[in-house]
Design a protein around this nucleic acid. Structure first.
Length: 345
DNA sequence: AATCCGGGGTA
DNA sequence: TACCCAGGATT
């Protein structure tokens, strides 16, 4: 049996029962692929089901507000995916008469669709023999063929794509592409791969040379930025204040409490004399207290956020806030959602 | 070519 | 901790 035959054979016997495997609707394939970018199947699955229920067609998604889409995306991370998803849904629905591009090359032009996703949709929805190369495929190929070219170098990306193109089963690219990814996710796992009962274990180079835990090779940088977020929970009886993040930064277009960001922890005095605080509170008298004694550490892949929540009650009330009862309708970062959940206004 | 962009699971 | 996940866009 060839490598591809073994993969597709293994897939037919071991594949998980997943909803996007029961359809060839390009819309649903596209939706699932965007959701699963850098996201585990188990994490994305409930979001996929919810999106399909709320937006059965690309037209339904196109007619939603961005805020609604972001709210449903809340907790999944990489929120530009949700913004691009919505943008592309409007493009397909309103400018392309609801019809998806049907080739790798044309799919690649969609916002939020890169090399991997274009190949995935082209093969799964349109049977085009375009090979997917995701994290799973890099791992399977690097191990099986014993390739130590870094997978995140320009040379590595080019090489693995070419190799994948040679290996793809042109008679059934959809099954092969999903098969090699599933094989990487379940059998050829990053940690503790199941080499003992692997259908490729007699010809795997990494297993023979004891390189399984050294491949694939990846060049990495572990620079993590520290940021100090001081949130102002400005509240009266019924209201509080939220702002939408506009800057080109994390959590773009999500909502949060008024924020004072600093390079180091702030004292109460530093908060109440800060220009941003003065602008919000004005000359009104107020009470202030620190909600969390220790910083709440929110870890992103590339930065650690040390958050303090300051509860501020202006004596004169709030003039232009939102209703506390409606706070859960706003899309917010998990850091904020966790606070709202615990604080219970 | 490097850097940015989330949140959660695993060993 | 460190690493990884059905990656893409920007600089």
């Amino acid at each position: 049996m060839t490598f591809s035959e073994t993969i597709t054979d293994w897939y037919r016997q071991n594949k998980r029962d997943l909803p996007w495997r029961k359809t060839t609707d390009p819309y649903k394939i596209w939706l699932s692929e965007i959701m699963l970018q850098q996201t585990r199947v188990e994490q994305g699955l409930p979001y996929y089901k919810e999106f399909v229920r709320a937006f059965p067609t690309v037209h339904d998604l196109a007619e939603a507000t961005e805020e609604k889409v972001l709210k449903m995306w809340q907790g999944l991370g990489y929120y530009s995916r949700a913004r691009n998803l919505h943008y592309t849904a409007k493009h397909i629905a309103f400018e392309n008469n609801g019809k998806f591009p049907d080739s790798y090359k044309s799919l690649l032009k969609l916002k939020g669709v890169g090399d991997y996703t274009a190949s995935a949709i082209a093969s799964i929805a349109f049977k085009e023999a375009s090979p997917v190369v995701d994290g799973n495929v890099y791992r399977v190929l690097a191990r099986y063929f014993g390739i130590d070219t870094p997978i995140n170098s320009a040379r590595g990306i080019r090489y693995f794509k070419e190799l994948a193109q040679e290996l793809i089963d042109k008679t059934d690219p959809a099954t092969y592409n999903q098969g090699i990814m599933e094989f990487g996710a379940i059998q050829c796992k990053p940690k503790s791969p199941v080499c003992g009962e692997c259908p490729l274990n007699t010809s795997c180079v990494a297993l023979k040379d004891q390189l399984v835990d050294k491949l694939p090779v990846k060049i990495r940088n572990t620079k993590i930025r520290h940021r100090y977020f001081n949130y102002l929970i400005i509240e009266d009886k019924d209201h509080t204040v939220l702002f939408q993040r506009k800057e080109k930064d994390i959590w773009q277009h999500l909502y949060e409490f008024p924020l004072i960001e600093t390079e180091a922890p702030m004292t109460e005095d530093m908060v109440t004399t800060h220009p941003k605080f003065r602008k919000l509170i004005g000359d009104s008298r107020f009470q202030i207290s620190l909600y969390n004694k220790d910083h709440i550490v929110h870890k992103l892949s590339h930065q650690h956020i040390f958050a303090s929540f300051w509860v501020v009650s202006p004596r004169d009330g709030i003039s232009d806030g939102i209703l506390k009862s409606e706070i859960k309708a706003y899309p917010v970062p998990v850091l904020i959602a966790n606070f709202v959940q615990e604080y219970e206004f």
